[in-house]
Design a protein around this nucleic acid. Sequence first.
DNA 1: AGCACTTTTTAAAAAAATTTAAAAAGTATG
DNA 2: CATACTTTTTAAATTTTTTTAAAAAGTGCT
Lengths: 415, 415
Amino acid sequence: MELKTRIVKSAELKNSIIKRLYFDKALSCADLSEVLEKSVPSVSKAISELIEEGFVMEQGYAPSSGGRRPLMYCLQPSAMYIVTVAMDQLSTRIQMLDLHNNPIAETVMTELKLFNNPKALPLLIEYINDYIDASGVARNKIVGIGIGMPGFIDSAKGFNYTYLDSAGQSLTELIAEKTGAPVYIANDSSLIAIAEQKFGIAKNHRDVMVINLGWGIGLGMIVNGELYRGNSGFAGEFSHIPLFDDGALCTCGKRGCLEAEASMLVVAEKAIQGIKDGHISSLKHTDKDPYKVVGNAIMEAANNGDQFAIELLSDAGYKIGKALAILIHIMNPESIVLSGRGAIVGKLLLAPIQQALTKYCIPRLVSSTELLISALGFNAELIGTAVLVMENFDKDNKNQSITTKQLSMEKTSKN
Amino acid sequence: MELKTRIVKSAELKNSIIKRLYFDKALSCADLSEVLEKSVPSVSKAISELIEEGFVMEQGYAPSSGGRRPLMYCLQPSAMYIVTVAMDQLSTRIQMLDLHNNPIAETVMTELKLFNNPKALPLLIEYINDYIDASGVARNKIVGIGIGMPGFIDSAKGFNYTYLDSAGQSLTELIAEKTGAPVYIANDSSLIAIAEQKFGIAKNHRDVMVINLGWGIGLGMIVNGELYRGNSGFAGEFSHIPLFDDGALCTCGKRGCLEAEASMLVVAEKAIQGIKDGHISSLKHTDKDPYKVVGNAIMEAANNGDQFAIELLSDAGYKIGKALAILIHIMNPESIVLSGRGAIVGKLLLAPIQQALTKYCIPRLVSSTELLISALGFNAELIGTAVLVMENFDKDNKNQSITTKQLSMEKTSKN
DNA sequence: AGCACTTTTTAAAAAAATTTAAAAAGTATG
DNA sequence: CATACTTTTTAAATTTTTTTAAAAAGTGCT
């Protein structure tokens, strides 16, 4: 009894040290004491236990700042692993990362249609299990499985109200049961946002708006330093604000939405029409090509200097800029990041977006917001899911040190 | 030495108990233990000290929930007082509240022009000092002075970049020096928002957008349970988003801003023009009447059923609704509150706003947001400033129990 | 009315965390 | 190159907090 409570208490501090080291890579005992608001002796004791248990290791001495050089600690990368899953409408990527965010194997990409596919959920579980088995990593070494997916998602309860019907049961509970590891889910745009804020171009910015330029246009919001999803998880429905009087008809049923005017899908449509109308361009088109292929071709052509492709993207950029003007007025963010697939043409979008901002924004507002282009790109979502797992690390292991957890799991699996 | 550290430590808990009781009115020892995440014995000890020191009192027993009835504690209302100041462009109100938010004297209202008035700041300080002197309350009994004012404000540093030029010195420090009490400032719309969320119609809502219907249209945002001001304090510039293609010219230099189309000032202008054009209405107009008088007359006439006045307000309401549609898409708030002066015609605005929301919003988004009308009305800003003072209570008294503070101040004043 | 079961409060014992002091390992400087 | 001044780390003493246990005060049912 006494032993148990002792472990519970010290586990809290130890888990928060692990979490902190995941995000900050390397810290000294004094650093940790300051950021965690615990005394140096407490932290010191916890660290030496963590080293003994194999979770933390010494990394060497940092340069002196005028006194004794601090001994830096970092996570033992192979102590635990994070399974990251990034889904879109058509395909799913799976990847396992160590505690330094380094992949331990090739990313596996599989076709998996979400829309109207009752088999999607069992298949997803199968793919994840296969991946873990193939990796050779023991289940009790997995911190958690993070899954990013499109749709309206309640992260706390673990539901996706758009895809992956789980017959009323919590998706996270269900998948956790079948895989033997804790599961966390979140919306893809949200994950890209936290990836950019924790490990990307907007690192440590308190207030960031991240635009997910995929086939649609998503928005992930970091507000007061944390992800904002709104009262019912619908915040950031950026692409359906009434932006143009009597514009194109949108899939949402309204007119003049940003998505109906400037998404990659619409750009592809316009390109096809343009080619038919005889526009000069390096783009070729056969009716059989799906929009996805056309979209990629446009981005590539634009990057290679094709005038028609650049025109199309500029037009979209200007419209996105008008919408961003609204966002800036309301949120006054430190930065706006162009991320997701479309980030590869980010440089081409920059000029028309800036032009729109100048036209539609109060000057002092534009000048207090930076416009940035993601460097994470296509990897953002995978990194975001890893962050999702580690963000929940201290909460979910509150009553149990990860050490005792691993021990108890080994025992039960031997039974 | 040992005594001092003992006081410092216990002061933290005691101050957080005071703060909590200010917001929650009455709590039992067990309640406090739970919300403050401290053990019952710790809280119990702190409470008995606070009672001895005269800050807390027993309030009687609450009904049993199946066991022993809890003894409820509340603040001794006369232990300390809060000075609240609400400024607008033309006039300033001052009021002193006890710890139960009850006014201890009549509100004093004085003419005080903010725009282009170098005497505004010394006058403000004089008014505050006069008010405190007249109240008969000792300076060391004043928790703090909260001031709400229009303009771009940095609450943390205590600057107002629009009005009350303080020659580079922090406004809050300056006023604190001259009045002998801690001073906190914030933007008027922000204060109305926290008033509605702490003591108003949106009590305890996590995500609320509060519209301040004054002569302009302000927005105060509560996000993830706390006030959001953006990266440089400019968040909520709601009334200057590009809403109408080529609309009326706005004071900000752009076209089609909400403020230029639907503010009370614009409504007043339209009313004057309408009367000249021969509209039938109970409204009378002489050219000498300032807009302020016209505006009030319109609101009164509309509430009395005057058709022309109602039409004018409905038109403004519909436009506000279009802007709210955008806000809902981005923020997905639990509720939107119509507050400030204009809240008295809130009922009349409800229908046209709802109509606009239905037209411009995705259905599932409208239905997840409540549209509410403030009951605090004109008092919201004063209550908001009191909240501002108490929100900072535990932070600013971190190293000193309020008791020892009062004692030390008594000594120095006797010297 | 008495018994089983709650919840709140108080008191004593045990554990955890912090403070204090001191040692260790550097830097800068005359 | 020794001295004064940093900063980091370790160790011991003290304080603070929590846990545990028990008492007090109610409810509700037979």
